[in-house]
Design a protein around this nucleic acid. Structure first.
Length: 416
DNA sequence: AGGATCCGAAGCGCAGCGTC
DNA sequence: GACGCTGCGCTTCGGATCCT
């Protein structure tokens, strides 16, 4: 049938009875943690493929091969995928699967002799004459739609200089274009680029992936920028942490972090969950939101046996208010807070506590008195993340915190 | 008020690094 | 030596601030 020929899968039948005409109808789909997609989006692609398979075959099954170090990514894909047909999600090094590995028992299919399915070829960047690094940038752009260079560099984990070259190549191929976004010139992906990104993820032609692909929520300019540069921020602050991947707005469990970094320290996997809070919602709403999220995050981390570092960023008063939103301190979760203007700086932390990078002694011009007594809340910050001094003490806020960047020196400087 | 100045963000070129 | 990549210095641009 025609549907099959549009699916970039491999056919890897299992012969349970040693008869050529009786098979388990297994299709294999490959994904990688380097695809620029969080597990959630990969799972949605798998669902779309599944739907096609159901239309095309009587008893199809799917074997998803996941190229990823550690456990978290594989486990997340496994958890998020809908298992409408017998399915198995395996790390890429597994080259053989058996019936037991599948989520449900498999109905055998009777095949006419020589009746081999014809499938579309799996994506290979070489076929499109595109280098892997260039493709990576394109895939990131497909999620962002429009972005500034430092944001793209951060998410890709490349230097800005290098990103510049890669963007130039994409531009030469008409896959992206320069466009003015707000105040500055940035980059926007073009339809041609989106199509190629979709092909690179082995998404069947003709399915709608748009709503799963990108960032979900509206975010203010600064909010977005801080989120997108989370990786670069963490790299600058804690260079000893190995970062495996980072995404903005990656759906996790019941919450969507503004940005998520999946990394590790030695063999131990860690999620760095960023929430950027501009402080526009009321304190009551903030409290409610966060106590929920922590409960969920804690359960998730416990189930997976990993640890989570949760970071709240926002204007100083939000970070200072934040401890009152924490119902408990959990043993496998660290909570840190930082002023969202202090790029590249994060407080020192130890697992299980609350640490703030905000200097409590410093007076901020538009500061309102604290609505609570800070001393009634758990551990005090152990180290100040801010070392630079104000250049001026004159208040000059007029339009709110979004414009208040004035007392931080260059963002590239590092402590120690 | 209006021009001068400052500053942060983005951009470019290029030297230089390590790896194959 | 080509390749993939980083670091750094310098320019440009535009908004905010300062000064008269």
């Amino acid at each position: 049938m025609d549907i099959l020929s549009s699916l970039p899968l491999e056919w890897v039948p299992i012969y349970p009875m040693n008869r050529k005409d009786v098979v388990f109808d297994v299709f294999k789909h490959h994904i990688s943690y380097k695809d620029g997609l969080p597990p959630y989006a990969q799972a949605r692609i798998i669902d779309l493929i599944t739907n096609r398979l159901i239309k095309a075959r009587q008893y199809p099954t799917l074997w998803v091969s996941v190229d990823a170090p550690g456990d978290w990514y594989v486990v997340e894909v496994k958890r998020l995928v809908k298992k409408k047909i017998p399915m198995t999600v395996q790390p890429a090094w597994k080259t053989i699967v058996i019936e037991r590995n599948f989520s449900q028992s498999i109905h055998p299919t009777y095949l006419r002799e020589g009746d081999l399915p014809i499938l579309a070829p799996r994506f290979d960047p070489a076929d499109y004459g595109i280098k892997e690094s260039v493709l990576r940038v394109l895939q990131i752009m497909a999620r962002l739609k429009t972005a500034y260079r430092p944001e793209i560099a951060s998410l890709a984990g490349f230097s800005e200089s290098h990103i510049r070259n890669l963007l130039k190549q994409l531009q030469a191929e008409n896959l992206i274009e320069r466009r003015r976004i707000g105040k500055y010139e940035g980059y926007a992906i073009r339809t041609k680029g989106l199509k190629l990104a979709h092909r690179s993820w082995n998404i069947p032609k003709g399915v709608h992936f748009e709503k799963h692909r990108g960032e979900f929520r509206y975010a203010g300019e600064r909010h977005r920028r801080v989120s997108r540069r989370w990786r670069a921020w963490l790299e600058a602050a804690h260079p000893n942490i190995e970062i495996l991947e980072s995404w903005t707005e990656a759906p996790l469990f019941y919450g969507i972090p503004d940005a998520l970094i999946w990394g590790r320290k030695g063999e131990h996997e860690i999620l760095f969950w960023l929430e950027v809070d501009s402080g526009h919602s009321s304190k009551k709403v903030m409290r409610r939101n966060y106590s929920h999220r922590f409960q969920n995050a804690y359960q998730h981390a416990k189930r997976l046996g990993i640890s989570i570092v949760f970071c709240i960023m926002g204007p100083p008063w939000v970070v200072r208010f934040f401890p009152s939103c924490i119902p408990y301190l959990y043993p496998n979760m660290t909570i840190i807070g930082q002023d969202w203007r202090a790029f590249g700086k994060l407080p020192f932390y130890e697992t299980g506590g609350w640490f703030s990078g905000i200097d409590n002694r410093k007076k901020y011009p538009t500061e309102k008195p604290l609505p609570f007594d800070p001393s009634q809340y758990p551990p005090k910050p152990k180290k100040k993340g801010i070392s630079t001094k104000p250049k001026s003490t004159k208040p000059k806020y007029s339009k709110g915190f979004d414009d208040a960047d004035w007392w931080y020196r260059g963002s590239s400087e590092r402590e120690e």
